[in-house]
Design a protein around this nucleic acid. Structure first.
Lengths: 241, 241
DNA sequence: TGAATTTGGTTGTATATACAAGTTGATCGG
DNA sequence: CCGATCAACTTGTATATACAACCAAATTCA
């Protein structure tokens, strides 16, 4: 079960990979040996090599793509805790990230929590959009937004082909109020997939409900990888009256 | 590979277990079917059943002990996302929790990050205090505070015996300014120990540096279990000028 | 009685195999 | 030249098997 050093086999392979990554012998985003290659090299079965790769993926050291290979992940940003980023910049930028990608835009049966939030009946159709926001070519934030179809401008409801997410976002207006909840969560599969983060990396999730004069308009989850996105500056709370 | 519902087999088993846990059909800390029993019940191999159990363990739903079995973990509080707690209440309460326990109060060599924060030299002595805040008999928040000894009132520096943490906290005054950073982290061992949460439960960590007229006074980590502590209400950011 | 041992069950590690699903690049055909 | 097809390779899922490590309770033995 164990090798001569008293270590589990998969742990030996993990250590090897980690040393290669730490010494930058395998640089960031470079392709590393495949499961079969590692299995041969260490004289273990593919499943054992696979386990090493998989655990390192969960720990954020690697990322893997089916059909392509395994790669060295970007190190988590190690910016000092004291380096305070001005949140105002972030807020302002939130409408126009360097790049944003509209991943999905469909009509969905309304999930329960959204139905409550928007005052719709369960399973009534809502417009669902999924947007990945990038910064420096890095996926930064995943936005899952549910929009009350009755509040969507007609041209938007009938024409799903939009050039930019920003165009889509600004189409829902005017917003007169909003509610926010911030919580710490582990990423769900969707978030993991799009932000390319390990399942063990905690995220800040901002749950936002927006209103127009007509009532609740949209309900959104904005999930940001905790290691990449920091809320800084002063933080003052204005309780909703 | 998939069953009739188009789901992966291990996902089907996960769903089954989750439903049993959520409906409390399998209560907290109760023993659940073994790998072999699940494998038989779902007509899959043991490794497939095992995968379901393992992923749920990583997600904090179960805990397992070699030679004993798999058990239902303490549920994370599932309060509705829409139930918004007024943060003003929280802020006000922050100075006087229902109960707080001073766990540790010593002088420590200054960690690097703290040295930078307080403008001290590396390894110079700082006063370190560790406080657990309770609410409803539940540990809610862990505070690790580092205080610049030069800014501490003399009577405090010479007398470590304080009756209440609040007394100690209010002794450091006057605070004229503060910086905050909120981030999502996984709990470190100290936090896990005192808040009694699984290592997979993300926390909100508020890093705070306080100032008096004499300069930086203290540097603190305030770590709250994400599932127990929610920031709610409106959230407005005043950038530090 | 009381300590040591056995037994049965559980999770942990590892192997060998098979096929599914996805990507990439080369090849073929119009 | 361009598009479709194919081949090779990668990761993903699933099975069957074996043994190790560990625990708890029953059994055995002094």
């Amino acid at each position: 079960m164990e090798n001569s050093s008293g270590q589990k086999k998969f742990a030996t392979i993990k250590d090897y990979i980690l040393s290669q990554v730490e010494t930058a012998a395998w640089p960031e985003h470079s392709r590393i040996p495949s499961e079969n290659e590692l299995a041969t090299q260490f004289a273990v079965s593919r499943m054992t090599a696979r386990r090493a790769l998989q655990e390192l993926t969960e720990q954020g050291v690697l990322y893997r793509t089916q059909g392509v290979g395994s790669f060295v992940a970007s190190p988590k940003s190690q910016s000092s805790l004291l380096e305070i980023r001005n949140i105002a910049d972030e807020i302002q930028r939130r409408g126009h990230f360097h790049k944003a990608e509209l991943v999905q835009l469909t009509s969905l049966p309304c999930p329960a929590v959204v139905a409550t939030a928007l005052g719709l009946s369960r399973n009534a159709p809502v417009f669902f959009s999924l947007i990945v926001h990038y910064e420096n070519q890095q996926p930064l934030q995943l936005e899952a937004r549910y929009v009350n179809p009755e509040q969507v401008p007609d041209y938007l409801a009938q024409d799903f082909v939009l050039q930019t997410p920003h165009e889509y976002l600004s189409a829902v207006a005017p917003l007169t109020d909003a509610e926010h909840i911030v919580e710490a969560v582990l990423p769900d599969d969707l978030t993991r997939l799009h932000l390319k983060i390990p399942s063990s990396e905690p995220c800040l999730r901002l749950t936002r409900r927006t209103f127009s004069r007509g009532g609740a308009v949209s309900f959104a989850y904005l999930t940001s990888a905790g290691s990449r996105y920091r809320l800084g500056g002063h933080l003052t709370i204005h309780p909703k009256t």
